[in-house]
Design a protein around this nucleic acid. Sequence first.
DNA 1: TCAGTGATTAGG
DNA 2: CTAATCACTGAG
Length: 185
Amino acid sequence: MGETGRLGRDFYTRDVLEVAPELLGKALAIRLQKGDIHKFIITDTEAYRGEEDRACHASRGRTPRTEIMFHGGGRLYVYFVYGMYWMLNIVTAGENDPQAVLIRGVENYPGPGKVTKALGIDRSFYGEDLVTSDRIWIEDNGIVPVFKSGPRIGIDYAGEIWKNKPWRYFTLQLPVDRPGRERGI
DNA sequence: TCAGTGATTAGG
DNA sequence: CTAATCACTGAG
């Protein structure tokens, strides 16, 4: 099936501040158990930028959980939080430069916990390579949405400087955007 | 606004 | 070993 637009290594091995907004409109493709391929348009992302970024998990050092962020762009950083939700992240930049993009929403599934539930993402996807995997990858389908940016959500612990960086990128219109939620934008 | 839920981490 | 933390969500 149409895998022609699959993004290659070069797309991911760039600064996360370039990759995160460019992921908007791309199609996240996943092969489900029966072999059916489902595609979801990415609508909401957040950039986490290296060891200096106090909101980035890698800022507290290399641990078993954050290890994959040090291995170069294109891999998946998947982790479990609040005892219930898997978070899906795409590693960017080069080796030993731990950056990642949180997939905060895809079409019809706004919210990082809803994304992974819809896609069936779990621990087994940790470290998966989007460039070579046969069960998950990202395609460029030509969609270039209008988007806005704003502060990242849920990182009050990171301190004023990092908390206020406008590193969340979200498309306008497509899904029903949640207006005036006092936590975001 | 707030509880649920359990992996991960730092510290003793 | 213990305890705190948490890139969330849905109910009230």
